[in-house]
Design a protein around this nucleic acid. Structure first.
Lengths: 157, 157
DNA sequence: TATTGTTATACTCTATAACTATA
DNA sequence: TATAGTTATAGAGTATAACAATA
């Protein structure tokens, strides 16, 4: 409830933003910021940012993979990944074990505590995802959105 | 052409990223980053970032509006807007005139040089937008994407 | 030679507090 | 008192270079 029909002379008439509203990239950015903001609100109680959520989930599904493996698939530089995984380690959620096959790399695992934590945050994420699906108009609309995003990010011919 | 059928034992099997690929927010972020990256490549010759493009276009369509007006609609804090508009001023593209009605604020305008510049960058943007539309599969697909993004960012009930 | 993890560093973007001049 | 523009500052996120250990 923000817009009332006749505000007492706001003396600030609405801007014409149609030129930007028609720009796909701009609209994508606004939508992404809005969704991340809602994610952050729901995950504030866990003290978890989107990047940390994705790291934990990927380690759960791919235990024993190296830091570069996880960093690369998320588009994070390995140099910047160090502080992220270190923080998760210090919270007792993840473990870096020396990999026997290649002693340069660290094999990443969830701790017992980490696995229990991931179970909780995945439930919160499932709830949030359902909220987004409802706003979109159902799973078919969600699938359509995913398809369009796929086409947009397909490598150019 | 990246994936060949049988690479010589890459010894780095693909990660399972399905858990993240099903997350709307994650996919939105990847798509937005990809589109912005392409925007940056096309606008590198102009020395123009996305925020600067949007500021110039909004001033063109809304001459005489204040810094807070333009900053607010773009979701930029007025404190951070200062350096942005100052840089555009110093490039001779925009002007900040003291507003006679309210001497606290600056009325923003394009210079003659700025107007000519905007005409050029809008053409580049139109070309890029058409490229995106083609990848999506046509204007109907584009409209569908916009509709879905609208629903996603609609205020919650 | 090339790669992994790491540190250091820099640059952008974003957020807050506080100041001034106006209203 | 509240707002517009401004400065300073701090925090994220991201990018590159370089090093030691290992391949």
């Amino acid at each position: 409830m923000t817009a009332s029909p006749a505000k007492a002379s706001p003396r600030r008439p609405k801007l014409d933003a149609t030129s930007m509203d028609e720009v796909i990239g701009y609209r994508l950015r606004r939508a992404q910021l809005y969704v991340f903001q809602q994610f952050n609100e729901r995950f504030a109680a866990f003290g978890l940012r989107p990047s940390e959520y994705s790291i934990l989930v990927l380690i759960e599904d791919n235990p024993g993979r190296t830091q570069v493996d996880i960093a690369n698939i998320l588009g994070i530089k390995r140099a910047n990944f160090v502080a992220l995984i270190k923080a998760l380690d210090e919270r007792g959620l993840t473990e870096r074990r020396a990999a026997p096959s290649d002693r340069r790399s660290n094999a990443l695992y969830l701790t017992e505590k980490g696995a229990a934590f991931v179970a909780r945050i995945k439930q919160t994420q499932t709830d949030f995802e359902q909220h987004c699906i409802d706003k979109l108009g159902g799973v078919e609309a969600r699938d359509k959105l995913m398809q369009l995003l796929d086409r947009l990010t397909a490598q150019d011919a």
